[in-house]
């Protein structure tokens, strides 16, 4: 790991000021991606600004019928939170399946969303449920947030403070794990919202994306089996040594059907 200066502000305003002062700095949330990246010398920030001491980033609240999850809530906290379990059970289940026990004790929703790993679980739930990403500067709709591989709409100096979800008890995230890495080879979140169905796919390509044709199929009364014949955009899929693009497309249909079958179960 390259050397850096470690900074630990108590307030989000101080974190923003430090970020503005040190343009080569990195933010540190739970560190479950960041620390392996630093150890492998894939990044060399001048400063690491820890968000771990900022109380305002913690907690879960219900506001205007939306569940607002603080950016620093760990996966384990989200998975066991009584409000999340009651109002957004699909997100609790998703959080309980990220990484392993130890990773869930450290990794946070804000960190995962900001990192936007192409195989991360959370982006699929945010996109399928129509979540909003709340930052130090604005509120961003999930549809406009995830812009590509490890890329988001976040601007320099902008920090995620919370993620807000509509309450929804008809959503399900189904993950087909790579048996070696345990990451999602394909992960699909299906949500049935008042305004219609939404399907988000992770792990299959350069970044999370919606399957609009699949959504239309479900809204026309289709079921999981009908998704087998619905077209997918081949440009969204990539192949690697773990599976070809064709394989991932095939698995997307199967995993989406399983997620649909689990709705409201």
């Amino acid at each position: 790991m390259y050397a850096f200066d470690y900074l630990r502000p108590d307030r989000i305003e101080d974190a923003s000021a430090l970020l503005a002062e040190h343009p080569e700095a990195s933010l540190l949330a739970g560190g479950q991606t960041m620390l392996p990246v630093l150890r492998a010398r894939l990044a060399a920030p001048s400063h690491v600004i820890s968000l771990g001491g900022i109380a305002a980033l913690k907690g879960v609240t219900l506001a205007d019928e939306r569940l607002v999850i603080g950016a620093a809530q760990t996966h384990a906290q989200v998975a066991s939170d009584p409000q999340v379990l009651a109002l957004l059970p699909s997100v609790a289940a998703l959080a309980g399946g990220i990484g392993d026990v130890q990773v869930r004790h450290r990794g946070t929703i804000g960190g995962s969303v900001a990192n936007n790993d192409p195989a991360a679980c959370y982006p699929a739930a945010l996109l399928a449920l129509g979540a909003r990403i709340i930052t130090t500067q604005r509120v961003i709709e999930a549809d406009a947030f995830f812009t590509g591989m490890f890329a988001t709409a976040l601007k320099a100096g902008e920090i995620i403070t919370a993620v807000s979800f509509p309450r929804c008890d008809r959503a399900h995230y189904e993950k087909f794990r790579n048996p070696a890495s345990r990451f999602a080879l394909v992960g699909v979140c299906v949500a049935s919202l008042p305004e219609g169905s939404r399907i988000a796919v992770t792990g299959a390509g350069f970044g999370v994306f919606r399957w609009h044709a699949g959504e239309a199929c479900l809204d026309a009364g289709g079921t999981g089996n009908d998704l087998a014949d619905v077209p997918l955009d081949a440009d969204c899929f990539t192949g690697d040594l773990h599976g070809s693009a064709d394989y991932r497309m095939h698995m997307t249909r199967i995993i989406a059907a399983r997620a649909f079958a689990a709705l409201g179960r």
Binding site: G31, Q102, V103, R106
Partner: peptide, 8 residues
């Protein structure tokens, strides 16, 4: 339980 190689 945490992985102490993944925590400063």
């Amino acid at each position: 339980a945490i992985k102490s190689c993944a925590m400063l």
